[in-house]
Simulated assay, not measured.
Amino acid sequence: MTPAVEFRGVSVRFGRTTALSPLDLTVARGETLAMLGPSGSGKSTALKALAGFVVPSTGRVLLDGEDVTALPPHRRGLGVVVQSYALFPHMRVEANVAFGLKARKTPRAETAGRVAEALELVGMGKYARRYPRELSGGQQQRVALARALAIRPRVLLLDEPLSALDAALREDMVAELLRLRAELPDTTLIYVTHDQGEALALADRIAVMRDSKLVELGPSRELYQRPSTEFTASFLGASNLIPVELIQADGTRVRLGDRELAADPSGTFRAGQPVALGVRPHRVGITAADAPGALPAVLRGVQWRGTGFRLDLEFAHDGNEVRAEVPDIDGLPNVGQRVGVSIPDGCPLVGVG
């Protein structure tokens, strides 16, 4: 089947600045792809090249097999939602949602029905006559979604759509987007974000971006559980990267302090290559300092996070730091106290440096 979206060697340069290194990427019809990375990683530039807002320096952009690299944005048939909502303040909600349809010269009778349909889809049907200033941030974002959906796009692009909302509203909107995914199974969704929680919740696959390049691409759960790069392990899920020594060349056994651990290697390694275990903070166990099999450490910091504590620890054997997340329990050790740290078998092993 022809992919919904293809980037073929697409790069974007502004003078001497490379905003996007040559990108090769395909997205299937009906798939949700998250492009995840920090600011300046190239993810929004890739989206703008797809939408037609920037002209690629090299390469081609295809939609359903058609080369659209030279087409203006309004002829690509894409729905776009950005973090600023971009609603017209002097227009009522219904007029904002109808804007793209009118630009496409959709008949008035059909426009009214599609506006009502799109507003109902995002739960904003009763707000059609209001102005944007009369809506909350979350409601304005729903209107922006309705405007994008009203044209019935084959591909829906969302560029940091929730970053302007508070935490509670973001959670509500993630739930809303999941519902929309279920109701629009044939719509391809490309979601740009720096929030790994949003990416993991929404995406079938995640494209991890860094320094204008695609670092890693794969199914969401696979990337979370078995990242193959140091950057993905630390950025997607905030893993501790704990330096270890290879015992077996295939990476299945490593040494940490005086302990041997089973590891889950993500690739092949050469003798003497620096490697690290990617250990999620919630998998780091805290025990008594003299507990059998525990690695001695010193507690350097404690933060209460509502549902539990974040502990910053320092290994006694090499001075490296490790972070743990533990439940809200009584009897927490004091800062400066010696404790034992347990690391489970089976953590992913990645090359570093």
Rank of each mutant, 00 (worst) to 15 (best):
V143T: 06
E120S: 15
L169A: 11
M173W: 05
V54I: 14
D172Y: 00
P161N: 11
I151H: 01
V82Y: 14
K43A: 13
V93N: 09
V82R: 03
A168E: 13
R152D: 13
S136T: 10
L162K: 01
V80F: 15
F99P: 02
V81P: 03
P73C: 07
A49N: 12
A148S: 13
R130N: 10
A167N: 00
G77H: 09
A95Q: 15
T106N: 07
Y127N: 07
F53P: 05
V122L: 09
I151C: 01
P73I: 09
P73Y: 06
G79T: 07
A103Y: 00
D172M: 02
T106S: 03
R92C: 03
V61G: 11
Q140A: 09
P72D: 07
G138Y: 05
L50T: 13
S57Y: 00
V143F: 08
A116Y: 05
L162E: 08
K102R: 15
A109M: 01
L169G: 02
G138N: 06
P132M: 09
L157A: 12
A98D: 05
E134R: 12
K105Y: 00
K102N: 11
R104V: 02
Q139E: 15
L71D: 13
R92T: 04
A49M: 10
Y85I: 06
L156R: 12
H74S: 08
R76T: 06
P107Q: 12
R152K: 15
A103M: 15
L149K: 01
P73S: 10
R142L: 07
R154Y: 05
Q141E: 07
A146F: 10
P153F: 12
L50Q: 14
L145I: 04
A146I: 09
T111F: 00
S84I: 02
E160D: 13
P107V: 06
A49P: 05
L162S: 06
D166M: 01
L78P: 03
M124Y: 08
V54R: 02
P72G: 07
G59M: 10
V82N: 02
T106E: 12
F53N: 06
